[in-house]
């Protein structure tokens, strides 16, 4: 089960925050296929948001094939977004950590690094069958917050 964190001042539509947090949980393995998402009633009882917002988010996730609603039972995860290459112990992560060390040694601060990474990301083409809006947490709005504060 996941817990959603709604930031009312983020400027990101509330339903999109839920979509992004579910995707982030799928990426990090907090949610796996077969897991049940909290019901709309459970979410609104915890977050005090409009139930239609939760249902709209679940419909969007359903549309993208990530979850499915089973009438009378709830909404369940259909597939994971976790990729071996993005895991905590992957070689890609180790390389990136090494690069971060070199960036810091070269005198770059946190914001310089973030700007550099964002600019390289911007110049890189990713093949995404779901189009520009189907992708990662950056879809829609870069200011989005994800479930556990990582970006």
């Amino acid at each position: 089960m996941v817990e959603f964190r709604i930031d009312r001042r983020s400027g990101v539509a509330t339903y999109l925050q839920i979509v992004q947090q579910v995707k982030q949980a799928l990426r990090l393995g907090l949610l796996a296929p077969g897991d049940k998402l909290p019901t709309a009633k459970e979410v609104v009882a915890a977050t005090a948001i409009n139930p239609n917002t939760v249902l709209k988010a679940y419909r969007e996730l359903d549309r993208e094939g990530l979850v499915e609603g089973r009438p009378g039972l709830g909404t369940f995860v259909r597939r994971s977004l976790a990729r071996p290459g993005a895991a905590a112990d992957s070689p890609l992560r180790a390389e990136l950590a090494g690069w971060m060390d070199r960036a810091r040694a070269a005198g770059l601060d946190r914001e310089d690094v973030a700007a550099l990474v964002a600019s390289v990301l911007e110049d890189t083409r990713f093949d995404d069958p779901r189009g520009p809006w189907g992708g990662g947490p950056e879809a829609g709005n870069g200011r989005a917050r994800t479930g556990n504060g990582t970006t």
Partner: peptide, 14 residues
């Protein structure tokens, strides 16, 4: 306020 709103939304959902 948060608790009351949450209770109100849960009623509306149900």
């Amino acid at each position: 306020r948060h608790e009351t709103t949450a209770a109100l939304m849960a009623e509306a959902a149900e």
